[in-house]
Design a binder for these strands. Sequence first.
DNA 1: TATATTATTGTATGCGCTTACAATTGAGTG
DNA 2: CACTCAATTGTAAGCGCATACAATAATATA
Lengths: 341, 341
Amino acid sequence: MTDKRDNANSGTGPVTQADVARFANVSTATVSRVLNGSSLVRPKVRETVEQAIAQLGYVPNEGARALARRRSNTLGAIIPTLNNAMFAAGMNAFEEEARQNGYGLFISVSNYDAAQESFLIRQMIERGVEGLLLVGNTRMDEARDLLQQSAMRHVCAWAYDPAAGAPNVGFDNAKAMYDLVDHVVDCGYRKIAMLAAMQAGNDRAQQRVQGVRARLAHHGLKLHAFAETRYSVQWAKKAVVRILSSGADAIICGNDVIAYGVLSSVKAKALTVPRDIAVVGFDDLPLSADLDPALTTVRVPAHQMGQRAALELLNAIEEDRDVRGYQLETHLVIRDSTMQL
Amino acid sequence: MTDKRDNANSGTGPVTQADVARFANVSTATVSRVLNGSSLVRPKVRETVEQAIAQLGYVPNEGARALARRRSNTLGAIIPTLNNAMFAAGMNAFEEEARQNGYGLFISVSNYDAAQESFLIRQMIERGVEGLLLVGNTRMDEARDLLQQSAMRHVCAWAYDPAAGAPNVGFDNAKAMYDLVDHVVDCGYRKIAMLAAMQAGNDRAQQRVQGVRARLAHHGLKLHAFAETRYSVQWAKKAVVRILSSGADAIICGNDVIAYGVLSSVKAKALTVPRDIAVVGFDDLPLSADLDPALTTVRVPAHQMGQRAALELLNAIEEDRDVRGYQLETHLVIRDSTMQL
DNA sequence: TATATTATTGTATGCGCTTACAATTGAGTG
DNA sequence: CACTCAATTGTAAGCGCATACAATAATATA
């Protein structure tokens, strides 16, 4: 099919720009120009080159291109895991936005391990990404140094803390919890407990806990019970038993998945939600609206966050300036797992 | 902190290997050797170089390295979306396996669009990935040509069809449905309907439908009703009403998310599962075991699939041979949404 | 038609790194 | 101590592409 004429390459390795140039009887500079859409190339020549490209089935080598231009057209993202719908959705949006702007995406998961994250940041720098998405504001000094020394543009998503040293694209987890606590308190619940996600090395989780505590204090209340659990329905089911036996009348969960487990355990105990006990989550996963009872929770703009993060990065790159942060709003979604007592 | 001595680089651009060489009074070849762990460099020299690297905060340029070695140490993956726990989980495993073997991951989502997939395949080739993960066996000829001409190693995951032209890493969707159908029929249900996922351009969905039809025929039965729906609880709830009014006594769903919607609609109709009607899913999402009633479904080895796909790619690259396929097994998980009538 | 301009194209260099091959050094041997 | 051989290190040539600058062709001007 692609009958490489003998003045094409010698059969070793892939077709290169030089092969195309030879085939079309022009210089590599001209080939490069048509490839890059330079206007200063005569239509006729352009066509000749384009035919040669098609004939030879030439595919440019983006790596070499990146080396020569000193631009990789690539963004990187390091997230804790993809086994979390929020991160997955965010990445999906991030990738789409990047791609639509001609950027590729390098992705890695850190498993919530700060050392691993530092290592990965280094890899990203080595791979020459032009912008990097990170999650949260907690990281090793080593990571910060790396970021700083390499002048790597980056955004820290899933958090919004004006005091953080790096540009954030996200929402204030603590403040979001205020709304939730206000709602629960307004409903009339008073023995409010919390089943949080593991806080170690996870500033989002920490801030949610802190937000609940602070707002409760504001209402003259304190946590009636508290526990942490891993991110899974099963673990949450187990972790909630102690809280349940404490006689709490409302349980604020660190996220929706935990809330699912809590709901399950609560039902198993023959308690009815929301009359006997209220349960609220955080994230508003797609399923949360379809639960029975439908879950009161906080809607997190994961898609928007991923898109926004990409946009901030891209704009900063484009305009050759520092990355700016962007605060997103969360939205309290009141459904049937809470009620006016 | 990193006081670059004046014999380091002139301040323009990042520190390069040449800067390190100059600083350590050796040639770039030697620097390259210590970087690549070559054994033929004297311990003392190695140490000198390592110090220079640390001093200057040198970070290698993986792109240049790739160009010189003609190896990118990078894998690519093009999946329909990350907004599907199965794909996200698979990618998570794929990335981990790749990373553990020193490979980076380039990822893109195609939104179930074949043309987009073709475009992305091209991008992946341009970026020089050494292996590519694709989903399913349905794709444009253009994509096949690209893959073939560039001799790109690839696996098509989430499917297993020995007759497919490309190496598959996955399971036989049709066969998996056999087990499910057998189970439903064994239970005594006879008016079996199906609510499938959209089949257009999605061979997994197609094969699941086909599997159900074939196995039903084997039992002397045929679909009592059939409909398709998008991938969401909400859409499924709507799409199932027609099936419900057909008087079906069992509904086989194209996946668990659809089953969630079906379960919800069924309950709303005051029918009890599984006595009045059976509902079965496919995927075994983490939540499926915690539903009420717990969902009978097919467990899909997403994690294993991602890992295996990476492994097959990596081994083929390592041993410089073609990629081999690998068939995974699915497992019928009988829970409470079906019962012996 | 000769010359000044401008539009195109080609030449040559370098991006940062690896590696074949040459050069140098050190150790071992008679 | 001269000489051989192996262990180290340096030299230099690319990898595939972009691009500054030089060269040339095309068009306009007088």
